[in-house]
Amino acid sequence: MAANTNMEAQTQDMNTGVPPMGFKVIAREFVKDKGALIALILLVLLIVGVMIGSYVVDQNEIMWVSLLDQYAPPGDKFLLGADSGGRDIFGQLLIGGRNSILIGIAVTFITSIIGITIGLIAGYYGGLIDNILMRIIDFIMVLPTTMLIIVFITIIPNYNVWTFVFIMSAFYWTGQARLVRSKALSEGRRDYVSASKTMGTSSLKIMFREIMPNLSSIIIVDLTLNFAANIGIETGLSYLGFGLPSSTPSLGTLVSYATSPDVLENKTWVWLPASLLILVLMLCINYVGQALKRAADSKQRLG
């Protein structure tokens, strides 16, 4: 049955010429969906702008406390005003944005390595190994993650950026592992894998060189969506005061100045830009992720 539909699909392809492959599909998707193209351009501009901007500005100068400029409104001296310590909001926005984006990338990277490896192992071997790994994953997924991360952060001595990244990664690899596992499970039963096994290819090679490339589109989509989610989680924790250490300002730290009702009500320039930057980043990354998702699934493609 499955072979039949495959044959049909192939004959159709032959009639309509070679279907677009790889990056061409993605490019076509973005050309077709103007919203996604705008989101992508905006995202690239924002990330490049924040990265370059944060290296151009002098962090020491920005974090310099000058009480004379306390809560200076936006104007000539400060583009976006100043906070309770008279520190430039715009500069803090650049530095916080850079930190939040880099942490998001780091966590996404680490969780993907763990998630993909475990997902491949569970899906490829199946049986008992799969069962054990899945029970562990199921368990981690039902934990109250936010609370546990916060508790870990408060009790860990010598707490720094890297411990934060590792604590976050320890809880957020499960989604990716689950996704990769379900795909690897069906992929591992295909003929090319059996053929490779008969030829004596090592399991490691089959998993990472043969199965993984076939899952690459799903993995890329998941990476994008995870990146957005991780930025959201990091800024949220930093907002509560349990995220990045105070020496490393994040966008969440800037938003957390709004804890004071006076700042929230009357000094919107302190917290609103950071909130909006987080929001725009999340919207853009998610939109790009959705477009990639459509490109990865031939049934949903627009282009």
Binding site: A228, G232, I233, T235, G236, Y239, L240, G252, V255, A258, L264, E265, T268, W271, L272, S275, I278, L279, M282, L283, N286
Partner: peptide, 16 residues
């Protein structure tokens, strides 16, 4: 939008 927005950003904007 409701999928993408982080909880604390929406809550703050609503409160404000």
């Amino acid at each position: 939008v409701s999928y993408a927005i982080p909880t604390f950003v929406l809550a703050l904007l609503m409160l404000w």
